[in-house]
């Protein structure tokens, strides 16, 4: 049972990664990044690496998203 869940999660991981790279809209690409991170956290927990899962959750879903949102905010300010 857990193998089937793992394979489904890995397929979704690849789908989110492709969406993140090939989408035209910058903002939806940024919002896809925490989804990618959350799926990766579940995969890490299934593979019994809780320490890496904690670091992934905090840094990807929290810190990197904040930095990217600020970057988008700054660059849109220059276009106006």
């Amino acid at each position: 049972m857990i193998d089937i869940i793992l394979y489904i999660l890995i397929i979704f991981l690849a789908l989110t990664a492709f969406f993140m790279v090939f989408t035209k809209d910058m903002l939806s690409s940024i919002i896809a990044l925490p989804i990618f991170g959350s799926i990766l956290v579940v995969i890490f927990v299934i593979l019994q690496a809780p320490s890496a899962a904690l670091a992934e959750a905090v840094i990807t879903a929290g810190l990197t998203t904040g930095f990217f949102v600020i970057t988008i905010n700054k660059t849109e300010m220059q276009n106006d």
Partner: peptide
């Protein structure tokens, strides 16, 4: 437990970041 200084420090740093945003 799983965790440590780096992860805990980043969680603490999220408080001023969230306040700034």
């Amino acid at each position: 437990n799983p965790g440590g200084g780096f992860v805990g420090g980043v969680v603490l740093a999220l408080i001023p970041i969230v306040m700034t945003i």
